[in-house]
Design a protein around this nucleic acid. Structure first.
Lengths: 165, 165
DNA sequence: GGGATCTGGTTGACATGTCATCGAATTTAC
DNA sequence: GTAAATTCGATGACATGTCAACCAGATCCC
């Protein structure tokens, strides 16, 4: 075990900046979202992923994988959203264990009316503050990190949570 | 209300990449941290901020501000950490309402033994995957976003949470 | 066909985070 | 000096996330 390679000044600046941005951006986006659409970020993400499919329907496990959520978390969350009439569950034809998450009319209405404001907020607090080169760099770098993290085991042994054993 | 400016392809790529990286990086860092140090990320952050002060002591509200946590959240979390012997609270001399959070010997031990592994993980999964230019860009861009978000009201009307009214 | 095993989804117990409220102490305004 | 307003931190109720079973249905393998 040799000496730790601590972060140098630039690295530390990037790392701290990232964590701080992460937190502030999250708070602000969540705040605006609840305020003017009555949705939480998790709600928004569920509805958004669902609405991107042609029928507004997805197998629960498929949705969980896309969102990088555990099935348990999604199941709990869907129950709450179901209470509010945003989604429903249907039985799966080809696999009797499965359930299919379906966007209701109210759910579609909710996401469609929330989306413009949310995108505007994302622009206002992030995208529009960046130069084209930075946007490009951010895209490249995040995808590289994601590939690195997801690569080893994204479809390998994965017990319950969206991570390895 | 004119037409929404949706994200173009590059913007969307950056935004999705960011969110995905955020999630995966978090999961992985948290996993390694609990596994080899028995700490959660919030634990680590509290200990880390405390240990960066000369005496390992900070006013609760000061710590909350640095971490961008609500006082309530910090208070709850400290109670749990106190149970585990990582920190203690002391009365504040100059303000009888206040309390001072103090790193215990065990707490210092915990952060010092956790830090090398954690920094290594941050390097392995993020920093060392980036070019110097990307690190520079990430530092610049995150700080710009943070300034934008924190600027308007960081010390203005702020009821309970670290955000505006 | 009929075990053993695996997978999809649910559930309950528990950990954590948020929000509203409160009591005590401080600060402000007069 | 003192009443009103503000701040500090704690607390209880509740929303959300995690983890470890669990059940039922699918798969494997003989």
């Amino acid at each position: 075990m040799d000496a730790t390679r601590w972060l140098d000044e630039r690295e530390d600046r990037a790392w701290r900046g990232y964590r701080r941005m992460r937190r502030l951006l999250d708070l602000e986006l969540a705040r605006e979202l609840t305020q003017d659409a009555g949705l939480s970020e998790p709600d928004y993400d569920v509805l958004s992923d669902l609405s991107e499919t042609p029928q507004g329907r997805l197998r629960l496990s498929e949705l969980a994988d896309r969102m990088l959520w555990s099935r348990s978390r999604l199941s709990h969350h869907l129950s709450r959203m179901q209470q509010r009439g945003l989604v429903t569950r249907e039985e799966c034809a080809d696999d009797a264990r499965g359930s299919i998450v379906v966007l209701t009319a109210a759910g579609r209405q909710a996401i469609e009316s929330a989306a413009p404001g949310h995108v505007a907020a994302v622009r206002r607090h992030l995208i529009d503050l960046l130069t084209p080169a930075e946007i490009e760099a951010l895209g490249a770098l995040t995808h590289r990190v994601v590939d690195h993290l997801a690569g080893p085991d994204l479809r390998a042994a994965r017990p319950q949570s969206p991570r390895e054993a």
